[in-house]
Write a protein that binds this DNA or RNA. Structure first.
Length: 304
DNA sequence: AAGACGAAAGTGGTTGA
DNA sequence: TCAACAACTTTCGTCTT
């Protein structure tokens, strides 16, 4: 029994928290993200007899957007079928078959390539299956609307992934996406905006809180500091300090302040690198935080 | 010597006429 | 389509520890 309990590899704590939506396990004691890419194998219903089993199980062959034809490809008949048709129908049959072939090969060839790329990038970033599916869906829609024309396939893939991450509130920065896909940051941003606008996908501005856990882990900050950072962040949001500002900058500054207060000081440079912003931005946010939240005394005391 | 601070000029994107 | 604008970056000199 005892050895079945999962322990945190960092501090051997047993308070591991599962966040199903993000597919992450986080250690409550030290804040380490123990596992990031998880798949939920469970079924969300229960069955007690064969009748319920029959009515509740709904899995046939898997249907998925990450297969180019969703695993449900259709062909217009086979050659053996034409013996049942007369001459007129026979011509018609060949015509339909030809067109179906042309249309589907163009789109499907693109999708095949693109989805391979998408899987590559997504596994590099350790994204969950749900996010991967979502981005595949977005990409498929984009191809069908002809939005890829004039843009590189890879950049649209990156854009779709970025959008899917945002929708699932597991934001990755443009820098991370850029590193994983090898596409220029601006290019990704551009296609991301274009695709979401064209497809009418609504995306809320990302919440700085979503970045805290990841940044804190990279900086090896304690769970305590992490919690503190979130508190600061919430206060900042209540004081209208966050609107219009880049979420990563705010998250970074909150972490920086929290680390100072808890005597786990990190340099601005370190925090800036992890968050993908400059020191100047951290300084500006930091100044605003001190002023509006009246944390001056707390920070200054630590300094003396 | 490294880190923190701040001023000034530059960049890319949004907005409104 | 263009100019104004806000946020952020880059760069660099100065101050602090």
């Amino acid at each position: 029994m005892a050895e079945n309990v999962k322990k945190c590899p960092e501090c051997s704590g047993i308070n591991l928290i599962l966040n199903k939506d993000r597919g992450e396990i986080i250690c409550k004691d030290c804040g380490l993200v123990v596992e990031e890419k998880m798949i939920d194998f469970g079924q969300e219903w229960r069955e007690f007899d064969s009748e319920q089993a029959a009515s509740r199980r709904r899995t046939g062959a898997p249907m998925t957007y990450t297969k180019y034809d969703r695993g449900l490809g259709t062909d217009v008949g086979r050659k053996s079928d034409i013996y049942q048709l007369g001459g007129k129908d026979r011509n018609r049959f060949f015509r339909l078959r030809k067109w179906q072939y042309r249309i589907s090969t163009a789109i499907e060839r693109n999708l095949k390539l693109a989805l391979a790329e998408l899987k590559r990038v997504s596994s590099y970033l350790k994204l969950t299956k749900a996010v991967e599916e979502e981005s595949a869906r977005i990409y498929t829609l984009a191809v069908q609307r002809g939005l890829v024309r004039g843009r590189s396939m890879e950049s649209v893939v990156a854009g779709a992934l970025y959008a899917a991450c945002r929708r699932h509130e597991v934001p990755r920065t443009l820098d991370e996406l850029s590193e994983a896909s090898g596409i220029d940051k601006k290019e990704i941003g551009r296609t991301y905006r274009f695709v979401t606008r064209e497809l009418g996908i609504r995306i809320l501005p990302s919440n700085p809180v979503d970045y805290i856990a990841r940044f804190a882990t990279s900086l090896k900050l304690s769970a305590n500091t992490q919690t503190r950072a979130v508190e600061i962040l919430e206060k900042a949001q209540n004081s209208e300090l966050t609107s219009g500002r880049g979420p990563t900058g705010i998250a970074a500054a909150s972490l920086y302040v929290a680390a100072l207060i808890n005597n786990e000081k990190r340099t601005q440079r370190e925090v800036a690198d992890v968050a993908g912003v400059t020191e100047v931005t951290i300084r500006n946010r930091y100044k605003e935080l001190l002023k509006k939240l009246k944390l001056d005394d707390k920070v200054k005391k630590k300094r003396r």
